[in-house]
Design a protein around this nucleic acid. Structure first.
Lengths: 246, 246
DNA sequence: CCAAAAGTGTTCTACCTACACCCATGG
DNA sequence: CCATGGGTGTAGGTAGAACACTTTTGG
């Protein structure tokens, strides 16, 4: 790691959401020699845009490109650092001593959240200070380092709020999906249940879905129709918003 | 300026909105020896929270305290700096040569927007690099340095969007105001006109206003009633939101 | 008395909510 | 044939949009 090329005191943390088995999952890193977990993050190269560095971090951990990624907050409290942590990391051999100075800085971190398709993330890759990278359910999070639990919470809140004027699903669901699957995604994000018929009506009224003539076979019941997103209309909706208010 | 106490490469820019004569105004700094204007901003002390440093900047420029101030975005593109600018400033004697190194850094900046009561800002105070501090109408902005026009635009967009689930007016209007004045504020922020009767009904339904038995006298027409905000309910609405959607 | 702005109420529509029945499938 | 989940339509309520007349005031 060539710390001299990094913007000092600035980091990026990504909250990477995936959806699997009707559960919102977050991609987390298990720290080496520490019981806690961390958000995948990184530093910002001096001659790169912060936003594109976030894309780089995301790609490094998930292997994915062209993903919905959005900056949502800067976390800049002084007490979000743990002065003894770099010491501990050096002592445990997690980081080489020459990096101690870098990790001793006071950092502010920019939070990004990403929506990715769970199944497309093959083998999430850990970083220097972590031993592995795993999907963890949002509903049952492990202990997290520093203020990462807070960052995660804020990401979820932001996502929930933005659901009001942005569609969700592309990047989070496979290409073809059923209406109940899409509904389950909304219910999971919103943490509340919705009426099937009303959900369908509202979602169809957004005019961003294309009904295919395929069906999801295999359940002991009526086979549901498969839909896909009309990507052009979907992206238009992302830009211009869905319903406004005023 | 003791740059060694500042967090490197990190600045704050405040978009300070005021409302006066049916016009949204922004508090801007006129740069010394430069035709352009800038957002009031500053740097972050190493041992201070970023949010509280934004409060400090705001107070320094406006003299005001206890103001609605909200972080809305981090601007981190590489091309938001102007490599020749520090040179020019030193040459023109705007900054002492020993500060050149500080201003030569690549900066990322955190945008905050504030809503302040126009009349309560007495004599806005300029900073080191600016010759004066003035209210400028949002509808007719002067040329701005760097990406400040962009930052301002994003602040306005954010404000517009947040109007859907947050009330506005406290901090931006005097304590007592008429319904048409409040409506004018909304119309200005939203850049569109609203129906008087529907506006009144909707606003009253929020249940954050208290009608006083005072009237605004002086116009050649019917004297409008004066209202004030129920601060407790207003703040509750800020926290919990107004209407939701899902 | 007239111009200008403020206060007020109703109707229409659109959307949201709540709710029940039939259908297809696999076991 | 039955249990499970999927698909569909309707009625009632609520909120927003459109709209016109009366009132007050200063000039």
């Amino acid at each position: 790691m060539q710390t001299e090329n990094f913007h000092p005191g600035l980091s990026i943390d990504c909250v990477i959401f995936g959806f699997h088995e009707n559960d919102l999952k977050v991609l987390l890193l298990k720290l080496k020699k520490d019981d806690r977990w961390a958000l995948p993050g990184g530093f910002v190269e001096k001659d790169k845009d912060v936003d594109s560095e976030a894309v780089r971090v995301l790609k490094k951990r998930t292997g994915l490109d062209h993903i919905f990624l959005k900056q949502f907050h800067l976390f800049g409290d002084v007490d979000r650092i743990e002065p003894s942590h770099s010491d501990t990391m050096v002592k445990k051999g997690v980081i080489p001593p020459e990096l101690k100075g870098w990790f001793d800085q006071r950092f502010v971190t920019v939070g990004y959240y990403a929506l990715v398709e769970y199944s497309r993330v093959k083998a999430p890759t850990p970083d220097l200070t972590s031993e592995r990278c795993d999907w963890r359910p949002l509903s049952d999070l492990p202990p997290m380092m520093l203020d990462h639990a807070q960052i995660l919470k804020k990401a979820h809140q932001t996502l929930k709020k933005e659901l009001n004027d942005q569609p969700i699903g592309l990047n989070l669901l496979p290409e073809h999906f059923t209406m109940p699957e899409l509904q389950a995604l909304y219910e999971t994000v919103l943490e509340k249940s919705l009426d099937r018929r009303n959900f369908r009506r509202k979602m169809l009224s957004y005019d961003i879905l294309i009904q295919t003539d395929l069906q999801r076979k295999g359940g002991a019941h009526k086979a549901p129709m498969l839909y896909k997103f009309d990507k052009e209309k979907y992206n238009k909706a992302i830009v211009s918003g869905l319903q406004s208010g005023w």
